[in-house]
Design a protein around this nucleic acid. Sequence first.
DNA 1: CGCAATTTAATTGCGCGCAACCAAATGGCT
DNA 2: AGCCATTTGGTTGCGCGCAATTAAATTGCG
Lengths: 171, 171
Amino acid sequence: MTATPSPPPATVPAPGSADDWLRLDQQVCFTLNAASRAFNGVYRVILKDLGLTYPQYLVMLVLWEHGTLPVKKLGEHLRLDSGTLSPLLKRLETAGLVRRERSARDERSVEVRPTEEGTALRRQALEVPLRIAAATGFEVEEIRELSAVLQRLTTALDAAAAAAEGTAEGA
Amino acid sequence: MTATPSPPPATVPAPGSADDWLRLDQQVCFTLNAASRAFNGVYRVILKDLGLTYPQYLVMLVLWEHGTLPVKKLGEHLRLDSGTLSPLLKRLETAGLVRRERSARDERSVEVRPTEEGTALRRQALEVPLRIAAATGFEVEEIRELSAVLQRLTTALDAAAAAAEGTAEGA
DNA sequence: CGCAATTTAATTGCGCGCAACCAAATGGCT
DNA sequence: AGCCATTTGGTTGCGCGCAATTAAATTGCG
């Protein structure tokens, strides 16, 4: 009882106590973060054949679905800003999968267009979702439910962050 | 209607088709990723007062719960390796929240111990989970369920990744 | 004891994610 | 026309997250 400076009790905290909240919180944020990284790990393995990282795969998904898009629109779809997208798109261009060209009508805008090679890559990517779904071991319906919950969560969190920023600053 | 080079159909693909799978998959991985980043954003705002980033907060959580730990054990708790933890712990040490000292018994091991200041920070951190929970707008039971699902998902994904790596390499 | 295999951290390199700042182009306004 | 706020990307800096490599200490074995 003498040489232990500050070891918190190893017992389970009482439900409803602040310690319990801390533990619960650790689970929510941590499990989400861990799941996200676990997903990333599986994608890393599967996407290695396509020469894409996971964020690059997301960009190509959007381009395959919507065709040529300015960086701004791309960022809105993916919830990413130019600080992330600019270098990423340069790498995709170096890889020969997209081309970036200034819009003629609005010189501020940069149109991102999949190249022939980038479009062709779509065929190889079609099997990716199946392999991912298999890796999760989840039923389709379960995945749909999870996605819905996560979307609701993201919306709530974004609103809360915006509100917190709003109250912090003068707005 | 003439100058659109390769715009994929904007219609909703038939359920069960490969296109539908692609879209569904996009939702699973993307919503998870987006939720994780949204969480990070809320934590960034709330933890700014404590001078911690979110991963640093996770490290302090583990230290508050378990007391002094070697880097290895810390990494097991958080699913992180030394490549991530080493610089992070150095920053925490610079901030005066932890001390790193070589174990006397095993010179390979580095014991991470919260300082007085680091331990004191726990009191300020106690209110964080409440604010986070409020930001989600979720009920406690709902959070618990979501956590359970995500844990199951992470376990399945890790197993799948390990299996994929195992078959890829000679093992 | 001497030597090889294992364990444990640290380091390096690369890519994302985001805040902060900057530059160019646009549009509205007088 | 001239001026100013807004829009749009780019750049920089910093902190993860992870793979790969390196170094040091420990363990096991003959």
